[in-house]
């Protein structure tokens, strides 16, 4: 755990967040490589407090609940023209870990925490998700390999082989941007892939996005190019999002329509060995 005094700045997908508090903030180690110079211009303010406020949840409109059969992860309410997030401790059922407020323009957070760990999971990923609504970006369940020329994203359901195919590309000399969670952002007309702070330490990385592969294990390497609405719907299925608001979904649909109109999208059945690297390279040559 790292203590960072009263304020610091971090950059995620080149969006600078200014995190500040009247008390010391403890930061999970994975955020440290994303710290940037204090002179960087912040676009999002994150004000942190220790101690939880009294909130009458009955008076708020429930918008969204992230939960499974066993526990609640977080709940979102409408509040003062923005949003109120209630995050639960994953180790102690029913215990609130943080209460956070986000304004309607997605650029000012107020985070109230039980302790000094203001960005404790899942607060960090929630901030990242709303950062993508603030800017022209999406958060994806995906891995990405950059061979120095091309960035290839691999997405698929759990167990489809995202980490496996990343490892194969890494062994072939590619840099792995991340093998689980990525931001795609459009900058100056081009799409780029960025890693995000994880629970482990990794440097901040960026790569151009040149192709997206929707992967699954298969007895042979076989790629099929997708286009149009089918490509949009298949890629969008792997976007991490809270889709309780029509404007959020419309923004995503617009982003993915744009992305899929300029980026080749393939369904890829693959054999988990090095043969998939040459197969992809050859397949891309043939268009």
């Amino acid at each position: 755990m790292n203590q960072f005094g009263f304020e610091f700045k971090i950059a995620i997908a080149e969006v600078v967040l200014h995190v500040f508090s009247k008390k010391t903030i403890e930061l999970e180690a994975g955020y440290v490589p994303f710290l940037v110079d204090s002179s960087a211009t912040a676009e999002i303010e994150v004000e942190c407090f220790q101690g939880l406020p009294e909130v009458d949840f009955e008076a708020l409109k429930l918008l969204f609940e992230a939960k499974n059969d066993e526990q609640r992860f977080y709940t979102i309410y409408e509040a003062s023209g923005g949003y109120c997030f209630v995050l639960f401790d994953q180790n102690q059922k029913g215990i609130i870990q943080q209460i956070a407020y986000l304004n309607a323009s997605f650029d000012y957070w107020k985070i109230y925490s039980r302790n000094a760990m203001a960005l404790k999971y899942p607060m960090g990923p929630i901030i990242m998700h709303y950062l993508t609504l603030f800017t022209d970006a999406v958060l994806m369940h995906a891995s990405c390999a950059f061979d120095g020329k091309k960035g290839r994203m691999f997405s698929g359901f759990s167990g489809a082989g995202k980490s496996t195919i990343s490892m194969i590309w890494a062994n072939a000399g590619s840099q792995i941007i991340n093998d689980d969670r990525l931001v795609i952002r459009k900058m100056n007309g081009q799409f780029f892939v960025y890693n995000t702070p994880m629970y482990y330490v990794d440097i901040s990385k960026k790569a151009p996005l040149n192709a997206i592969y929707l992967i699954s294990h298969f007895p042979e390497n076989k790629a099929k190019k997708l286009s149009g609405a089918l490509a949009v719907s298949k890629v969008m299925a792997f976007c991490i999002q809270n889709n309780f608001d029509k404007s959020f979904i419309n923004k995503r649909l617009e982003f993915f329509s744009d992305l899929c109109s300029v980026t080749p999208i393939y369904e890829l059945g693959f054999v988990p060995d090095e043969s998939v690297v040459s197969y992809i390279a050859e397949n891309e040559k043939q268009g």
Partner: peptide
């Protein structure tokens, strides 16, 4: 493209 407006993220599938 039709997307369900739902509180459940899993609906994206």
């Amino acid at each position: 493209v039709i997307v369900p407006l739902s509180g459940n993220v899993a609906q994206m599938n």
